[in-house]
C-alpha cells in the first residue's frame, strides 16, 4: 500500500514537472509571423521570387528555419543578416545601403534632376524671347511707340 502511495506521489510529481515544462514552452511562431520576415527576403535559388511565396521545397525549409530562428528569439534584422551572410546580398529585396550599392539609389534621382534642370533651362530659353515679345507686342505693333522707329521716321522727315 505504501509502495502504491509512493508510486502515486511520484507520478503526480512527474506529471506536475512535465506540465510545468509544457507550460514553459513558447508556442512556435505563426505562419503570418514567418511570412512577415520571409516576404522581405528573396529565394536564394529562384529568380525574382520572394521567399514567402516561393513554392519550392528548399524555400519551404528556409521558411521553417525562419520559424525556428524566431522561436529562438532572433530579431528580423538578425535573421536577414543570417541569410545575407550565408547566401549573399541577393536575398534582400533591395541592394544594401552601403558602399558601392549606394549607386543604385543615387543615380536615378541625379539623372532625373539633371533632366528636370535641362527641361526648365530649355523652358526659359524658349519662353524668354516670347515673353519679351508678349510684353512688347502691343508697343511693337504701334510704330510710334518704338523709339528706334520713331527716330528713324524723324531722320527721314529731316532729310525730306
Amino acid at each position: 500500500m505504501k509502495k502504491f502511495l509512493y508510486t502515486l506521489i511520484f507520478i503526480f510529481l512527474l506529471s506536475i514537472l512535465f506540465t510545468g515544462v509544457a507550460f514553459a514552452q513558447e508556442p512556435l511562431p505563426s505562419d503570418d509571423e514567418v511570412n512577415a520576415v520571409a516576404s522581405q527576403l528573396y529565394c536564394p535559388v529562384c529568380e525574382s521570387t520572394p521567399l514567402d511565396v516561393c513554392p519550392t521545397e528548399a524555400c519551404r525549409q528556409w521558411r521553417d528555419l525562419i520559424r525556428q530562428q524566431l522561436a529562438d528569439g532572433m530579431t528580423e534584422d538578425q535573421i536577414k543578416q543570417y541569410f545575407v551572410d550565408n547566401y549573399g546580398a541577393r536575398v534582400l529585396a533591395e541592394p544594401p545601403k552601403q558602399g558601392y550599392f549606394w549607386l543604385a539609389y543615387l543615380l536615378p534621382p541625379v539623372l532625373i534632376l539633371a533632366g528636370a534642370i535641362m527641361l526648365f533651362r530649355s523652358f526659359k530659353v524658349w519662353t524668354k524671347p516670347q515673353a519679351a515679345s508678349t510684353g512688347l507686342d502691343e508697343e511693337k505693333s504701334d510704330p510710334s511707340k518704338d523709339e528706334y522707329v520713331a527716330r528713324f521716321e524723324e531722320e527721314i522727315k529731316k532729310r525730306n
Binding site: 528573396y42 520572394p50 546580398a89 541577393r90 536575398v91 529585396a93 533591395e94 541592394p95 550599392f101 543604385a104
Partner: peptide, 24 residues
Amino acid sequence: FWGVIFPLISELFTGQKVTVGPPF
C-alpha cells in the same frame, strides 16, 4: 532601366549578385 541593369553591373564589376525588387 537602372533597376534592371544594376544587378548585372553589380555582378559584372563586383561579382556580387543583388536583387532590385518592388520596394525600390
